[in-house]
């Protein structure tokens, strides 16, 4: 369970690979065949992965209440872009309100979690003290158990604090994460300790070292953690489902599930428009942050 930062991790751009070093003796027919098969497999799987998303966007442009199109009628004769304002401004299920809640909650969770977790990661990477390994072990163990076990007591606790159906219930449970602590600790360990020593000689205190040495040198790791936290918070379903109940406090993820049950599968165009609204920010964040993803996942693997 040691630090693993220097192990070669696969960015999406790395392409060093064992089989290539075996088969570089020229393009024998076997290698060509292999290449063709590989591309065929890649294309087939990609098509299956992308098809539902393409379908989602196209169906969202059909007329409300129209039947599920067969593939030959998938492209609507005239795109009904008006489905989007209709969904966003529905007076009874205000998706724009859900959207605001999701943005606000995710932003608060990302900043809060990065702050709280980076403090902990700093202590776990920079300080020697009795109980350090115990604390670290505790964080790792709790990472293993999800909300199934904790749902009832956490609910009762939020109830006693009168936090149910408020932003507190949506934000506070996400303010620290073992995964983020772990990720940041790995990154902090790779920063040379000499820099701390130099800063200390200049009379810098702990907080100054943290803010002015460690944090600026960990931008990439922080971005990785932020991407993960954002996606985790945006797609959290169980928490908002349990801890909120009125329409004005729901997030997009729960809002979408309500949309689904309200239409009972009888209005796919509007349901798909709502789905696109939920998915867009995720895809955008993924597009800009994908190199952080692979890195973060590899870091998360405890070796």
């Amino acid at each position: 369970m040691g630090p693993n930062v220097n192990a070669p991790s696969s960015g999406m751009k790395t392409s060093r690979n064992p089989s290539s070093s075996l088969g570089t003796k020229g393009m024998v027919p076997k290698a060509v065949f292999k290449k063709v098969c590989s591309y065929a497999a890649l294309l087939l799987i990609s098509a299956f992965m992308m098809a539902p998303f393409v379908w989602m966007v196209l169906v969202s442009l059909h007329k409300p209440q129209s039947p599920i199109p067969t593939l030959s009628h998938l492209v609507p004769p005239r795109p009904h872009l008006s489905n989007y304002p209709k969904v966003l401004l529905n007076p009874n299920l205000p998706v724009s309100r859900f959207f605001f809640n999701s943005v606000f909650v995710s932003a608060a969770v990302v900043f809060g979690q990065l702050f709280v977790s980076s403090l902990a990661a700093y202590a776990l990477s920079r300080h020697r003290f009795k109980g350090r390994s115990t604390v670290f072990f505790l964080f790792i163990v709790t990472m293993m158990f999800g909300s199934t076990v904790t749902q009832i007591p956490v609910y009762l606790m939020l109830q006693n604090l009168h936090w149910l159906n408020t932003y507190f219930a949506l934000i506070v449970p996400g303010l620290s994460s073992a995964f983020t602590i772990f990720l940041l600790r790995q990154a902090f360990l790779s920063i040379p300790f000499e820099l701390d020593e130099a800063a200390k000689l200049d009379g810098a205190g702990e907080m100054k070292i943290f803010w002015q040495v460690v944090i600026p040198l960990s931008r990439a790791a922080l971005a990785t953690a932020a991407t993960f936290t954002f996606i985790g918070s945006w797609t959290d379903f169980f928490g908002p489902l349990l801890y909120t109940n009125s329409t004005r406090m729901r997030t997009l993820e729960v809002g979408l599930s309500i949309y689904h049950s309200a239409y009972g599968g009888n209005n796919w165009p509007l349901e798909m428009a709502a789905s696109v609204i939920v998915m867009m920010p995720l895809l955008l964040v993924f597009l800009f942050g994908q190199k952080f993803f692979t890195k973060g996942i590899s870091l998360g693997a405890i070796k």
């Binding site: 009874n92 299920l93 109830q159 009168h162 149910l164 159906n165 109940n245 009125s246 329409t247 729960v254 599930s257 309500i258 049950s261 309200a262």
Partner: peptide, 20 residues
């Protein structure tokens, strides 16, 4: 007006338990 379109019964019972 507090609109609770999803699982109304369950949420009302829980509200009662919460004194809310």
């Amino acid at each position: 007006r507090e609109v609770v379109p999803d699982q109304y019964v369950s949420k009302m019972v829980l509200d009662h338990d919460a004194g809310a």
